[in-house]
Write a protein that binds this DNA or RNA. Structure first.
Lengths: 172, 172
DNA sequence: GCATTATGCTTCAGCACTGAGAAGCTGTCC
DNA sequence: GGACAGCTTCTCAGTGCTGAAGCATAATGC
């Protein structure tokens, strides 16, 4: 029998024990970090399992979803949006192309650049699975009330922007 | 010049555009998911870069930190704590052993089981780098006030436990 | 007590992705 | 109009981890 206690797909850090060498502010921040990592990992595991039913990774789904909601995009734009490496975006688009879900189109005004665009098959797939996927996420989040979700979102947006080195209220 | 727009080390999903087919509750949950993923990715990138200065991955650091704060642990315990696969824990402990930071000890009462324990070198390393690491995390979180951190932590704990399939207020 | 089932760790092939480098294209500044 | 900095994409070797199978040991049922 295989053991493999379903690993939550993402590594979560050090659930903090009490370390007397830390001041209370630091210890509290560390606890938040641990809790955030675990929540993220647990929800990611569900989201990942959901798209895996259709033979997709989360990164692939992210690309499909972006193209579905925004139309054709330059590879570089997609890359920034789903946060993968430059090599990664090429690799992922290749794979989606091989699956017949995405196609590359050349850019008329800049011959270095290429667009990624959904094929009809890709559009149909996203239209089919996106609502279910959204429901999976929503169900995971629904354990806290909407106004709490709103507050958490505001706080985490601040954390995320600061950590990513962005201005506090950038447009994009 | 290499381009490689520093990928935040973790894949973040689909920043939601407005999809009229979704009800507002779902759309809001989805936005939270995106924001949480990005915040997590950004902070992870910083944490990861911090431990990378010492030639460690976050998973390795997680093991060292757990052993430092709790003493020797069975491999299976460590595995559950840092959320890696069964194969992963063997692999990681092997690598830490090769670096001379961790050693395996056999268990007196169950000859299947093995303990992982810090060596002197490992203990010294954690003692050296843990405070800095905690400070890096704390700095990232410090952009929101302590009481807000507390609220976010409470909310996310609920989300994490529910998504991981645990009871709402389990002890561990 | 002996089969059966469960548990703890290991092995190993495989996979998703990174990151450094390179090739091609564009615009700009002499 | 040529050099060159700066993008955009692609290549590919390398990495860190997963997950299924497997071995050894322990616990349980009969």
């Amino acid at each position: 029998m295989a053991t493999t206690t379903r690993p939550q797909h993402d590594l979560a850090p050090h659930p903090e024990a009490h370390d007397p060498s830390l001041d209370e502010h630091t210890a509290s921040a560390l606890r938040l970090w641990v809790i955030m990592s675990r929540a993220q990992a647990a929800v990611t595991a569900q989201a990942s399992a959901d798209v895996a039913r259709h033979g997709l990774t989360l990164a692939e789904f992210g690309i499909l979803e972006a193209l579905y909601h925004r139309g054709p995009m330059l590879l570089g734009e997609v890359q920034k949006r789903i946060l993968v490496s430059s090599g990664g975006i090429t690799f992922l688009v290749d794979r989606l192309t091989a699956k017949g879900l995405v196609e590359r189109r050349s850019c008329e005004y800049d011959r270095r650049a290429r667009y990624a665009a959904l094929t009809d098959k890709g559009t149909a797939l996203v239209a089919e699975i996106f609502p279910e996927h959204a429901a999976v996420i929503a169900r995971a989040m629904a354990v806290i009330p909407p106004e709490e979700q709103q507050q958490v979102a505001n706080s985490l947006r601040t954390v995320g922007r600061a950590a990513a080195g962005l201005p506090s209220h950038s447009a994009e």
